[in-house]
């Protein structure tokens, strides 16, 4: 009973405090870089597409609003042939960013995504892909992956030995 009264008193006191919210269009809030807004696809420091179409983001998406089709280019790099996010379904939970093994998919502090036509909420790969590396400036997945691509043959990755000579007789 006392706690109820105490609660009522605290809430009543709130009536004389500064408001936490701001009057949005006139005053713009400063958002943290970790704010979960519009989703982008980033590039690695070399400018290559970071997304390797591993399907983990689409798998983890609780509203199933990400759809990808993987394919491979002539250099052996796997990339998404199509990458579509239906933002009219997206709940901006950020699980896709958490699941991404290459830090390709990132949420940005841009939340101004309202549209008059729902169709405009469907973002294709060209709408998602940005020019830079986003929040992570270093990571380059193919440098640490075992897969060889053009420009990084077997053994040229980070922490990799030269390929084994299988015909060597040395023990």
């Amino acid at each position: 009973m006392f706690s109820i009264l105490k609660g009522l008193w605290i809430v009543f006191k709130h009536g004389f405090r500064k408001r936490e919210t701001v009057l949005y269009p006139e005053e713009r809030p400063i958002l943290s870089p970790r704010y979960r807004g519009r989703i982008v696809l980033t590039r690695d420091p070399d400018g290559g597409e970071r997304c390797v179409a591993c399907y983990l983001c689409s798998a983890v998406c609780p509203v199933d609003c990400i759809v990808i089709q993987a394919t491979e280019d002539e250099n052996g790099r796997r990339y998404p042939k199509s990458f579509r996010i239906n933002f009219s379904r997206c709940i901006y939970c950020g699980l896709c960013e958490e699941a991404c093994p290459t830090t390709a998919i990132q949420l940005t502090p841009d939340f101004e995504m309202a549209e008059y036509d729902r169709k405009n909420m469907v973002y294709e790969k060209e709408d998602l892909l940005i020019a830079g590396p986003g929040k992570n400036h270093e990571y380059n997945f193919y440098k640490v992956a075992g897969l060889a691509i053009k420009g990084k043959e077997k053994g040229q990755g980070i922490e990799e030995n030269e390929p084994v000579d299988i015909r060597s007789l040395m023990p």
Binding site: V63, D64, V67, R84, N86, V122, E124
Partner: peptide, 15 residues
Amino acid sequence: NGYSGRTAMVANLTM
């Protein structure tokens, strides 16, 4: 039960 992309597969054609 892990089938993904349900709400985006045809989103380019119809909402």
